[in-house]
């Protein structure tokens, strides 16, 4: 198992030339590899700035924006369309109930006043009690206040109903499960209609070619690193033949031979990338303008805006209805008290009338 320990020993001149040659080779390799890496960074930077390939990837995505999902959940939690539908149906009945109480109360006053007037006409000054008309003045004033309030409530009901009619469709949509909601929104990404369109196919193809260029680069880099470069024999021969070593000439010639093809391929690779990046930028320009101007995009915006305002209107309508229902219920209590007052005074007047009539007949 003999190993010659002095195998590598060479003349000093050769040793010096070898070290210079190796640093030349290192510079060349570093420069080539550096260019490849730099090109890859540039390519990644440009694609990132164009949001590629992400913009192309979510073409098939049709997701509902998070904010809309939250609004949908909120509306469903509050009972959805059904709960406000029911309340709106109740409004006319609540109104009618209050109207009837008020009308009955005023009718009682009217009837009693009529009999009082008839008796006054019949007995003239002998019918000397206060006329009902005078007595009922404050009650009638109160009655007209109630009528005004009810007229205003009718207008309020109308406003709520109109608001409901305007938004009920969108509110219903908002209450749908996410999958239906998603399907009902015109392609969440306007480019969706661009899917399969020329510009998208071209852009995809260009990105694939770019990927290939990048992959080639990796292979190229490995090959460059793998190149063997040993000047020992050349330098030894030169020294033996000429007595001197023209390191630079010998090294550059050898580097050209060994790395010429790689250098050429690096250049081609970089040119190929430059061309492709220019093409990608033009295609992306077209893609972006198409995306902007696409009628679908506008449609999507419109629907999303409507969905958002549907949520806001739902909240408003719910509070309007709560207020309206409370209004009618509170008013009913007040009107029932008013009705009691009217029936009490009418009852008192009737009792008084009967006594007066008895007196007159006896006299």
């Amino acid at each position: 198992k003999f190993t010659d320990l002095f195998e590598k020993m060479v003349p000093m001149q050769v040793q010096q030339s070898l070290s210079i040659a190796s640093s030349r080779k290192a510079d060349l390799v570093n420069r080539l590899v550096g260019k490849l890496r730099e090109a890859t960074n540039l390519c990644n930077g440009v694609l990132a700035s164009l949001n590629l390939p992400a913009a192309l990837e979510d073409l098939s995505g049709d997701s509902v924006p998070q904010s809309i999902l939250e609004k949908s959940r909120a509306v469903v939690q509050q009972g959805g369309l059904h709960s406000i539908e029911q309340l709106i149906k109740d409004l006319p009945e609540l109104l009618q109930r209050n109207r009837e109480i008020l009308d009955e109360s005023l009718k009682m006053l009217d009837d009693e006043e009529t009999t009082d007037n008839e008796l006054r006409a019949k007995f003239s000054q002998r019918w000397n009690r206060t006329p009902s008309g005078d007595l009922y003045k404050p009650l009638r004033a109160e009655g007209s206040n109630f009528r005004n309030v009810l007229d205003k409530a009718v207008q309020a009901d109308q406003v709520v109903r109109e608001r409901y009619n305007t938004h009920c469709e969108m509110i219903a949509l908002l209450c749908k499960p996410e999958s239906e909601l998603c399907a009902a929104i015109p392609s969440a990404n306007p480019a969706n209609t661009l899917q399969g369109s020329e510009v998208v196919n071209v852009l995809k193809a260009q990105l694939q070619q770019l990927d290939e260029v990048k992959r080639n680069r990796e292979v190229l880099e490995e090959e460059i690193k793998a190149v063997t470069f040993d000047m020992t024999t050349k330098f030894l021969t030169a020294l033996a033949q000429d007595g001197a070593i023209n390191e630079e000439a010998l090294s550059t010639t050898e580097l050209d031979t060994r790395y010429g093809a790689h250098t050429q391929r690096v250049k081609q690779n970089l040119c190929a990338q430059d061309d492709l990046l220019a093409q990608v930028q033009t295609s992306h320009q077209e893609f972006a303008t198409l995306k902007q101007s696409n009628a679908e995009a506008n449609n999507r915006e419109e629907v999303l805006k409507k969905l958002a305002s549907a949520h806001d209107s739902y909240v408003e309508i719910s509070s309007n209805l709560k207020e309206g229902t409370k209004f009618y219920n509170d008013l009913t209590e007040i009107l029932l008290r008013f009705q009691n007052k009217c029936s009490d005074i009418v009852f008192a007047r009737k009792t008084e009338r009967d006594e007066l009539l008895k007196e007159l007949q006896q006299s």
Partner: peptide
């Protein structure tokens, strides 16, 4: 608010 207030209607006027 949308509906009229009932505050001034709640107070019962005293019959003289």
């Amino acid at each position: 608010s949308l509906y009229p207030s009932l505050e001034d209607l709640k107070v019962d006027k005293v019959m003289r």
